[in-house]
Every structure is written in C-alpha cells, then in structure tokens.
Design a protein around this nucleic acid. Structure first.
Length: 188
DNA sequence: GCGTCGATGGCA
DNA sequence: GCCATCGACGCG
C-alpha cells in the first residue's frame, strides 16, 4: 500500500484515467477517513478537446487545470453538485480526469455510483479546488489491486462537443456494480 | 424498465 | 442560457 506521488499525475490524462481504475481515493475529513476504490473515470485531454472546460479559455474557474498535474480541480454544476477532477500533465497543458464512480471501502455503505453522488458522500466540495493531491487531506493510494479488463465508451453528458463527443475517453471496470448508470452506451 | 422533467446557482 | 447531474414521476 503506497501513496501515489507527483510523477504519476504528470502524464497524459488518458493514461492517468486508465491507471486510476483500481486505485484508492482517500479523503481525511473532520476526524474520519473516507476511502473508496475508483471504478470509473473520464479523460479530458487538453485545450483542443471541445468537451474540456479549458477549451473555452483560461478563466478563474479553469485556472487550476493549467497548473502542473497533481492538484484537484473541483467545480460546481447544475446548482447542486461538485465534480472531482484530477489535473494531469505538465504546466500550461490543461488536462484532467473526472472521477465518476467508486466503491466504498472499510465496510462503509454508500452509493458512489456517479460523480455528483460520490462527492456528496465523500464530503468533497469546491473548498478542495486546487488542493495538492500529494498532501495530507485528499490523496490516492495504490494497494496493488489490478483491474483485469478496462472497458471504454464515449464520455457522458458532452453532446455539445462536436467531433469530441464520440471520443472513447470514458473508462470503467466492467465488473463493478458501482459504475454509473449509462452502462449501455459502452460500445466495447 | 424506460423517457422526461425540474431543481438550483455559477459562469461566460 | 447554458451546463462533465440526479431523483422523482408517469407510463402501462
């Protein structure tokens, strides 16, 4: 069981999105520790990716994505949900991986089968935007677990993104029951 | 089991 | 006026 370090995050988001499957997300909150295994991710591959928020330019909201990989990008959407992303790649290359679903660990009973559900249950909010993922609060662990097979599909909810809407940049563990709802759109 | 719809607020 | 969402509701 080892904590994941900076070099892991400084690579392309597609690679990181695949490798994050099976890794453990840890949030130390109040006096408790919330842990969950990642089973579904999406890669947003850069400013040229029209589904990536950074395609609309460098703004206060997207600023974190322009930093070096290894920080959290947490944004608020639909007036009620926070989305957790992991910034990847080098400085000034805005890439990120959206964490879409996890399985709770340590006997914790929670439904983490969706990006909004998982942040709510894990108490992850915009206050963690910009947080360094190699720090003590929010971080990732590798316990050596291997994901047998990785399934892919188009990303969810990005129909507005032209030719990018069909890119196979959603990755998930097909054996997990915690994968978010639109399992159907999988196309191998 | 499906499709549709409304909640709700920050952002450009 | 959009949204990297979710749960409730109506159907039959």
């Amino acid at each position: 069981m080892k904590k994941i370090g900076t070099s892991f995050f400084r690579r392309e988001s597609e690679i990181v999105a695949r490798e994050l499957l099976g890794k453990i997300l840890v949030h130390r909150h109040d006096r408790s520790v919330l842990r969950a295994r990642i089973v579904e991710t999406e890669a947003y591959v850069g400013a040229h990716d029209l589904a990536c928020h950074a395609a609309k330019g460098r703004t206060e909201r997207t600023e974190v994505m322009f930093g070096t990989g290894g920080c959290a990008y947490v944004y608020f959407i639909y007036g009620m949900y926070d989305m957790l992303n992991i910034v990847t790649g080098p400085k000034n290359d805005p890439q990120a991986v959206l964490i879409r679903a996890c399985e709770p660990l340590d006997g914790w009973k929670a439904d983490l089968s969706g990006p909004g559900k998982l942040t709510k249950a894990m108490r992850i909010t915009r206050k963690l935007n910009g947080c360094n993922l190699t720090g003590p609060l929010l971080y990732l662990m590798d316990d050596g677990a291997r994901v047998e097979k990785i399934a892919s599909s188009a990303r969810i909810g990005v129909d507005y993104s032209g030719e990018w809407k069909d890119a196979l940049l959603r990755f998930f563990n097909p054996t997990s029951k915690a994968v978010s709802a639109p399992r159907k759109r999988l196309r191998k």
